[in-house]
Design a protein around this nucleic acid. Structure first.
Lengths: 246, 246
DNA sequence: CGTTGAGTTGACCATCGTCAACAGGAGTGG
DNA sequence: CCACTCCTGTTGACGATGGTCAACTCAACG
């Protein structure tokens, strides 16, 4: 437990290569799946004026625990990990964000979680107070954000059930199934689950160690439930995984 | 793990001894600390028309996982446990609700959690659709609910950190400190934490077994951090607990 | 072609779970 | 009032799941 101090979690300054021009929301890739879908086209133009496209390199910090009035980011590409650290370096990854997810709805005055790019990531950024003022004027946007928050709460509770009452194998199954639900569907093919995050990330998400994650994936692979591929897993026995996750 | 099936979790019908008359919100004990504080007195009268006071005996079900359009309850007295069950009977208690807490903001169409009275409980109840219509008309109420949801999300994440990355002793410390934060403060005295819930409840909340909960409390007691009292714990070494919870 | 970092595997061990016995209080009935 | 049961909580002995430590492979990269 004490050698965790040594683990090298990248902690660069919080920076963002901010674009000079506002976002073109109407052309946004994640429009329709994200909170912006609550807005009509006039509102969308206004939203675009407030937001700036930005990008992060893999391992770059986006938000730091304790940061005040952290901006809100709407993820448009890449993957982000959300986590909390204990004093002695133990880390709990609370979840991963994918395109369409919003980072920072929950942040009131002070961020309670850190966010870091897992892979190269693009997002559009809203300054905290400007965003707060906008939501105060747009009840439909607020309703959409509230719906998101409730959904996140639901997910956080599933996570708690997994961490509190499931075995290592069940946790892995649950994790894979939950990623499967977010993966693009390829009909007629064995679905492939992309795993852009490291084994350490998976371990810190599931309350395990890298060794246990590795062993459990190997076991599922030996038993024919999955096939391990570089930065991915192919699902061979979906029922087996579903049963583990149930 | 298989004998968990046998465990007797009370599952009576979902009933509520509903009062005939609307609630008198202006006289409410939890007014000021609960979401209703977002409303001015006109709105409060309207809210009162929508709500009905109700009460539950200890161990009585309030909401059942899977229930559709479950009513919203504002807890005014007593303690409630929120939980999810796995198929084989394993239970994860997601949290305990105290007076002023709202049960059911997160519930959209279908409840994803069960709620059960730990002790005799009083609440005021809102039918789901009436409540939804009210929030749609009252942005300030919606904002307050959203704030609550964000706060709950924050709490759920703390819970996940505890379950995923803390030892048994740290979990107990975290649990006691979090209850301490909700207990009435008695200045100049060793604070007493009421524990209306059973050891099984604590275990199911912290991802442990009753035996481990019992042993850990005994250990903390032997070491002078706490004194175990019937249905309560007296805090002798607050720093010790804070350090465990940190 | 050496270095580095991620992932895998094995041997061993500790924390916490399992199983079992027991203590004490509350409720019940003789 | 006492005997009895039931239920909750405590404690002990033992064991299994998953953590620790270490060695090794392999791909990426200079």
């Amino acid at each position: 437990m004490d050698q965790l101090f040594e683990r090298d979690y990248a902690r660069p300054d919080v920076t963002c290569s901010r674009g000079a021009t506002p976002t073109d929301c109407a052309a946004c890739r994640v429009r329709g799946i994200s909170v912006c879908s609550a807005l009509d086209s006039d509102d969308l133009i206004e939203l675009g004026r407030l937001s700036r496209p930005c990008s992060f390199d893999a391992r770059q910090m986006i938000t730091l625990e304790g940061q005040t009035s952290a901006p809100v980011h709407n993820i448009t590409g890449g993957v982000v990990r959300l986590y909390r650290m204990l004093d002695d370096g133990r880390r709990q990854i609370l979840g991963f964000l994918f395109p369409g997810d919003v980072l920072g709805i929950e942040m009131a005055k002070e961020a309670r979680v850190s966010a870091e790019a897992v892979s190269d990531t693009t997002a559009c950024r809203f300054e905290a107070d400007a965003f707060a003022r906008l939501t105060a004027r747009k009840p439909r946007l607020l309703a959409k954000l509230h719906e998101r928050a409730r959904h996140e709460l639901d997910g956080a509770r599933d996570h708690a059930v997994a961490l509190g009452r499931r075995t290592a194998e069940e946790r892995i199954g649950w994790f894979l199934v939950s990623l499967l639900g977010r993966s693009p569907v390829q009909p007629d093919k064995r679905p492939v689950i992309a795993l852009p995050m490291s084994r350490q990330d998976i371990a810190d998400h599931l309350g395990l160690t890298i060794e246990t994650v590795s062993r459990t994936l190997t076991k599922l692979s030996r038993e024919g439930a999955i096939a391990i591929e570089p930065h991915a897993v192919r699902v061979l026995d979906r029922n087996r995984l579903q049963r583990l996750a149930a």
